[in-house]
Nucleic acid binder design. Structure first.
Lengths: 216, 216
DNA sequence: TCCAAAATGTAATCGGCGATTACATGCAGG
DNA sequence: CCTGCATGTAATCGCCGATTACATTTTGGA
């Protein structure tokens, strides 16, 4: 519609600009894959292509293989995950590091409970383990640094029983990660027909952990 | 070779007796699948058949589909897992419930660290979630009951801070489950070239948890 | 003892998937 | 305008799970 866009710089520099024929097939494929995952279906390149109304070979113009598509999907999911956690933290008072830690864990688990298949794609190592994606690595490191920072502040204010912050951080991470994975792996059979039941249990578990590391 | 084996009872009762031609193809297929998993390879029915030197269709005489094979594999892995934990517990003094709890967690994580792909098959819900296997359900319930029992004894001896045993049990489960999954999902990048590093961290995390729930 | 039936294995085949190749199309800029 | 590259298609390959028709071996009872 716009007659001419004056492009201020070379267009061959960035490797992922926009496709020509389809509009933005890359984006559409990622969205299709996200929806497939959200529906609990297997994410296949062919099905994503089908949803994009495109031939089975077309996706391979944008992704060298299936894993590359999944990495892009993981990047998007991780971005949403991080955004939701940071939004929750932005409403927690900066002066209460353990309260922030609690809000962090709560937001983490809430998102993981409500987006289990997306959480699985983020967490299942296959797509980030080999340094596949700088964005993925960065977002993840950011979250870890955030939690370390909160613990450091708590320690500085003399709120913690132990001085081994690394150990506390790993334990806390394992706790929320384990709870999230237990949920998506089907280890919570029928408690939560009410759907809120599991989230209340998540809250209780986080509180138990914080009570365990905090000075009385 | 043996001329006649006097069979003392009807043979049509049990649905899984022994195969005829191959010796025990069912068993061989399960073992092949266990080895495939241990090698980090994808477990495919065809590859298991190849290793058993049998045609690609043969496995389907013993398993209605791939999932059924994986359930059998999960049963065997779960059996080993449980056996190792119970062996470790048999050496822990019965009078010290929290010490037993610690030994339990340690044995759990040791096995999960050393058999990550088998742990994954056990834990990944797909093979037990739909009540596929009574043995799997039973072994798992047994382990859960064991941990609940230890916590109940600890509470009875007045060793615990909180009386909410259910919450403690879920948190402890989530902690070890999360640590084990973080390991197999690739969330422990390069700490443990020495291999024992991660196990020492596992020990520290368990001790931190127990310190958090125990009266000082 | 022998034979019919059940149990087990094979060969051939189907559809779905990831991936590659040769070819077609359309947009961009010199 | 027209050449070249980015994008999409069609056809194909090999692997996988699964089914079917057929072959073979074991079993248990007549």
């Amino acid at each position: 519609m716009t007659p001419k866009t004056p492009k201020p710089r070379a267009r061959r520099q960035a490797p992922e600009v926009r496709p020509y024929h389809h509009g933005d097939l890359r984006r559409v494929l990622i969205d299709a894959a996200l929806h497939l995952a959200a529906e609990g279906a297997e994410v296949s390149v062919r099905e994503a292509a089908r949803r994009a109304a495109v031939s089975p070979g077309a996706p391979f113009r944008h992704f060298p293989n299936r894993d590359a598509l999944m990495v892009a999907v993981a990047e998007e999911a991780q971005r949403r995950f991080r955004a939701e956690i940071e939004a929750a933290l932005s409403q927690a008072p900066a002066t209460d590091p353990l309260g922030r830690f609690r809000a962090f864990g709560l937001a983490y688990l809430r998102w993981a409970m409500r987006n289990p298949t997306h959480f699985e794609i983020i967490s299942t190592g296959r797509y980030f383990a080999h340094g596949s994606s700088a964005a993925l690595t960065r977002d993840n490191a950011e979250l870890i640094a955030l939690s370390e920072q909160m613990l450091a502040e708590a320690a500085q204010q003399g709120l913690l029983l132990s001085a081994d912050l690394k150990r506390i951080q790993i334990a806390g991470r394992a706790l929320v990660y384990g709870f999230a994975r237990m949920n998506l792996d089907g280890h919570f059979p029928r408690w939560g027909v009410a759907e809120g039941e599991i989230e209340r249990m998540a809250e209780g578990v986080i509180d138990l952990f914080i009570a365990g590391i905090a000075k009385p």
